[in-house]
Structure formats: structure tokens, C-alpha cells
Design a protein around this nucleic acid. Structure first.
Lengths: 339, 339
DNA sequence: GGTTAGCACTCGACGATTGAGAGTGCTAAC
DNA sequence: GTTAGCACTCTCAATCGTCGAGTGCTAACC
């Protein structure tokens, strides 16, 4: 039958239902649509259309006498239109928001997660995939008071890591610099693994200052460990409490505990390498998250894909504005990390 | 009347009630005490004693036919005994737990908050009071790839802060070191404020490398700003959801939003300079937190008071183990920060 | 044919009612 | 001083009826 195919009016009505539901979190009735959105049509007409939309799988009724609720399929259509249209509403404010100076990659990541969560009022995740084969670019000892020194390792990718180590009190700034130079000369270009291996050889040459070498070895090991695993940061996890879907504390806790298990979180974020992805409910592939959506945007460093920024929230989510916020922050992230 | 004064048995019973209530969060009935704690007494006897304890203000009844609930006064007695007795159960595990290497003061603070919250399963706060008059100890530029450099400022207290700045591409490591030396020589011992002021004077001497000076000025300003305000870190804020007191989402949200307002949090933590404080309910002086307790322990750097570690949770809290955890972490913190 | 008014029907939300259970206070006996 | 017994109170959970929102269907209308 003709009435069982989508036409322009059905789409308008469906969109109105989705919009209303996203706002109110309450099943949408025919009268609501008739009054608020399609004022030229009566509720009875809307009812007929809704009935068709239900048969087409776009709507569902929680009970026979409640309004309609959009199905996953409806959200999918809505989102695909959004993504296909290419016309993401631009969101300069989000970008503005996230423009503080930050010191190194990890800080950028954390602060991006903060920015996204504060801006969207949802839970934000930022993921940075592992970087193997990090190579040392500079290694330097900065003098500190009382026989301490700050050991700084900079890699070719610009990652910085530092730690405080003890050194002999009689090493002044120049001596530390001489050591730094020597070490940099020999270790530059080596991978972190190699650095660890080579330290044995140098320990003889350094004589009593084995402490320094041990400090370096430890830091290199820690850096290697950190860079060899994907990093994922969560921001604004308790934003979830703002949404009636999680007014049940048990649900909220279940949600939060998933966020605490890094592995699950990784799994949730391991998405195809596309500019944007929206996974709705079961599409996340995780039963615990069956009534959540995960929206991600990828960001790059240089021209190579790098990581994801994302938002996790109820399926009822203003995908448009979330996507544009992610796009803005993702863009800012790309810029900051590319230089 | 004699029966209206505390005697040893009343104290035992009161303690049993508090312990049971801390465990179960349910009003405690006379039969429970008679069965689980004072098996030689019948429930009727316990009832009489409870009635006295209520008259003395240590117990309250939510309704006429519920069990009893300890009052603030009861917790106070319980805690004072704990504090007065001096015999805090030692808790080496907590200390063990918090022993990772961390790079600088802020990291220690954050990781202490993490450790406390994971260990006690409550929300933890760590506060570090402002440090005025920070003086520069070393200032160093570490070369990075592609015309960048990492600017590191170390203060006399061992605080480290760094930022990435742009420098002219033709400055190699030695040139950067020469600049670092020169800057350190002139700025060492100056306060951060002075550093900012003096930068104008040097900008002429440095010629084209005003970028460097600007970077330093910015970093010094940021450092000064950060060190001039009390810092407070929260860990494990959503542990609160584990407790039935907060099974109402509204309450949980109210609680969490207080934690987000730094000023309120500060107010909550501004306690007298004592080794331990326990403030119960209204004693916190904050109406929103009327049914919470705040437990703090102070830690020191050297011999001078420095800051607080604390736990915020429902009044029904195992004060003994919380205090010992705080004491352990506070001690570890003192050690780490004193060297 | 599409649109609309009208109406019967369904089902959840909400308030009142009720019974069961937990716990108390009191009294009288030990 | 302690305890058994009992009447009493009050919460909690379940049950029941009412109300209202919203639907589907039919018949009339344009």
C-alpha cells in the first residue's frame, strides 16, 4: 500500500516526534504533535500517520495507551540524515571554550574531555591510541634544590615525561647539562626499549651516578608502558545523573562502573576509522549499554588518523549539537596536536 | 535518677547500636542488640536502656515503631573516644597502596585523593593551602622537535611547572642552555611576581626572541596564580552512590554539585589546624551537608602545617577505619613532600 | 481519497484501604 | 534489676478503584 511508505509528511512528523522526545523524555502523543508542530493537521490525522510509522518500525508504544517513542531505526534515520547532509551546525563556542594552554599531550586529552562534557552536559571520552616505537629526541636534567634533579625526556612526537631523581649534591647545573648532552647524544633516535637496554652499558662509564641511570631507565620504562597502551580519559561522568533515564541509582551505578573499567570503555570506543560515527543502543555491541548511544568524532595529528573524541549518553540525545561540539573539539585537538 | 546517667552497660549498648547502624543503615531494634551483641540480656532490658539513652539524647526514633538510630551526639561520643583513646587502628595497607612514583606536588595530591577514595570507598578530598612568595630556583629550556622548546620552571619549594613555547629554529641545545643559564642567573631567588616584572627589562637584550620571554612571563603568571590560591582535589566522588543514604538521585546530585563548587568545598574543609577533626552533620556548618560527616587529617611539610586530607560521606561512617586510612595517607604525604 | 470529529476502549499513574510485621512501652511476675 | 507477655503504633507492600491520557476505529465531511 502507498500509505506504508515514507513520504515527506511522515518524515516531518517523525522528526517532530524525535525532537519532542529528545526534549521531554516522555512518550509523544498525537495531540502534542498536532498542537506544537503540525498545526494544520488534526490529531486524528497524526494518529493515522503514527500508526503507519509504527508499522514501518520507526515508532514504538511503551503501552497501548501511551504516546509513541522513537525506535533505534528512527534515530538511525535521523542521524544518517544529519551526517549525510554534511551541514553540521557549526559551534564556535565549543571551540572557544577549549583553548587554554596545556602542557603536553595527556593534558590536552584530559582538558578536551572536560570541555566536551561541560559543553554537551554528557559524559565525554577521549581516546588516544597507542604509539609504538617512540624515539627519544632530548633528554635533560634540570637542577632542583637539595640534590634533586628533574629528568625530562622529550620524544620525537613531542611527548614529554618527567620525574624527579636524586643526584649527587656536587653536580651543579653545568655538570648536569654536560651529562644531559652526553646522554642525548647517545640516546637520541633510539626507541624507549633500546634506551632501557643500553643503560646497562653506560652504567660503568658513569661510575657513582648509577642513580641517574636508574632514574632514566625507570622513566623510559614508564613512558614505554604508557605509550604502548591506548589511553582513554573520561570527563563529566556524573553528568549522567542529569537525565531521567538514569534516575534509578542502580542504572546510574552500572553506567559509571562501565566507565571505570578501561577495557570495556576501550571496547565501546573501538570504532571504524571514520570522521563521525553514531552507534545507537544495541549497535554499541555491549549489552550493558543497550540503551545508550555512543557518538564519536576522530581527530588527527598531521594527516594520519590519531584518536577519537566521544560522548556517551542516553539514546535520546540531541545528536546534532553533540556532533557539532565533537567536531569543534576534534578540530581544535587536531590543530593543537599537529603543530 | 541514677538510670539517667551513662554507665558502662549503656555505653556498650550504644556502641553496639552505632556499629550495627554503620553496617546496615537500618534503624536498630532491641531484639537485634539482644541477639547479636548483648546475648546475656533480653530485648526488654535493652529496650529499657534504649529508652534511657534516647532520653539522654544519644538515640532517636524515626517513628514510634522503628528501631533506634544514633544521634549526632552519639557519633560525637563515639568519635571522641576514638580520638581520645589515641589507639587508631594502624592501616599499613592504605599506606602501601599509595606509593607510586609521582612527578610533582600536584600529582601527589591527585594520587592521594585517588588512593583515599579507593581505599575507603568514600569521596576523598585533598587540600593544599596557597603558597605565597614562591621563588625561582631554576629555569631551563629543553629542546624539542620543530622549533619548539619546553620551558621548565623549578621553585625553591620543588614545585615544577612547564609549558611548550616556540623558539627560533636555529637555536640548538647549547644555545638554549646558554639562555637558560643566563635567565637562571638573573632570575634565581626572585619571586614569581618579580619575574613577571623583570621580563620587560630583558626583552631588549634578547632581541628577536621575545617569544621566549613571553612564554616565561605567561608561565610565571600561571604559576603565581595557581600557587596563590588554595588547591583542592576531589577523588572518587561517585562513591557516594554506593550508600543507601543517596539512593535518591536528587540527593546524590546535590552532593556532587557541592563538590564541584570549589568555594563551598574550601569552606567545608577550612578546619582548625589539628591532627584530626571529625565534623558530624550540622557541625560542618553547611546546611546542604547536614547529613554528612567530614573527617580530616592534616599533613605537614617539614615541621610546618601544610594541608588536609579528608573524607566526606554519610554520618553513618566507620570513623575508625576512615581515620586510620587518612592517617596513613597523610603520613605518606608528609614524607613524600618533606624530602 | 484524504481529513476530521466522535466515541469506546485500554492501560498506567495515583491515592486510599488493608493486612502483615517489626518494634515499642508498659505491666506484672520472677 | 530482669524478663515475659501483651496491647499498641506505625511503616511497608499489596490491592483496588478512579482518573486521565492516548489510542483505534467508524462515520461523516470536503
Amino acid at each position: 500500500m502507498a500509505s506504508h511508505e515514507m513520504d515527506a509528511r511522515k518524515e516531518r512528523i517523525l522528526r517532530a516526534i524525535i525532537d519532542d522526545y529528545i526534549q521531554t523524555a516522555m512518550p509523544v502523543g498525537s495531540r502534542t504533535i498536532s498542537r506544537k508542530y503540525e498545526t494544520s493537521l488534526s490529531s486524528a490525522t497524526i494518529r493515522n500517520e503514527m500508526s503507519d510509522l509504527e508499522e514501518l518500525g520507526y515508532l514504538a508504544q511503551p503501552h497501548v495507551s501511551a504516546g509513541r517513542v522513537p525506535s533505534m531505526k528512527a534515530y538511525r534515520l535521523y542521524v544518517d540524515e544529519l551526517l549525510g547532509g554534511g551541514a553540521l551546525p557549526q559551534n564556535p563556542a565549543a571551540r572557544e571554550y577549549f583553548s587554554q594552554r596545556v602542557r603536553q599531550v595527556e593534558d590536552v586529552i584530559t582538558s578536551a574531555a572536560q570541555a566536551i562534557s561541560e559543553f554537551t552536559r554528557y559524559t565525554a571520552v577521549v581516546m588516544m591510541p597507542k604509539q609504538l616505537e617512540l624515539r627519544v629526541s632530548t633528554l635533560q636534567l634540570v637542577p632542583m634544590p637539595r640534590g634533586a634533579a628533574l629528568l625530562v625526556i622529550v620524544t620525537d612526537t613531542g611527548a614529554i615525561r618527567d620525574t624527579v631523581i636524586h643526584v649527587s649534591e656536587n653536580l651543579d647545573g653545568d655538570a648536569l647539562y654536560a651529562i644531559s648532552r652526553m646522554l642525548t647524544e647517545r640516546l637520541q633516535g633510539r626507541t624507549l626499549q633500546e634506551v632501557q637496554e643500553m643503560l646497562g652499558a653506560y652504567s660503568r662509564q658513569m661510575g657513582g651516578d648509577a642513580q641517574v641511570l636508574q632514574g632514566i631507565a625507570e622513566l623510559a620504562a614508564r613512558m614505554a608502558r604508557q605509550s604502548a597502551t591506548d589511553t582513554v580519559t573520561v570527563g563529566g561522568s556524573h553528568n549522567i545523573l542529569n537525565y531521567p533515564e538514569y534516575s534509578d541509582v542502580e542504572k546510574a551505578r552500572a553506567f559509571l562502573s562501565v566507565l571505570e573499567e578501561k577495557e570495556k570503555l576501550m571496547a565501546l570506543l573501538s570504532v571504524p576509522d571514520e570522521a563521525f560515527t553514531v552507534r545507537i543502543g544495541p549497535e554499541t555491541g555491549m549489552p550493558e549499554m543497550a540503551d545508550c548511544s555512543v557518538v564519536t568524532a576522530s581527530y588527527q595529528v598531521g594527516r594520519v588518523h590519531h584518536g577519537f573524541v566521544g560522548v556517551i549518553g542516553p539514546t535520546r540525545m540531541p545528536y546534532g549539537s553533540v556532533l557539532s561540539a565533537l567536531s569543534a573539539i576534534g578540530g581544535a585537538l587536531s590543530e593543537m596536536l599537529s603543530e
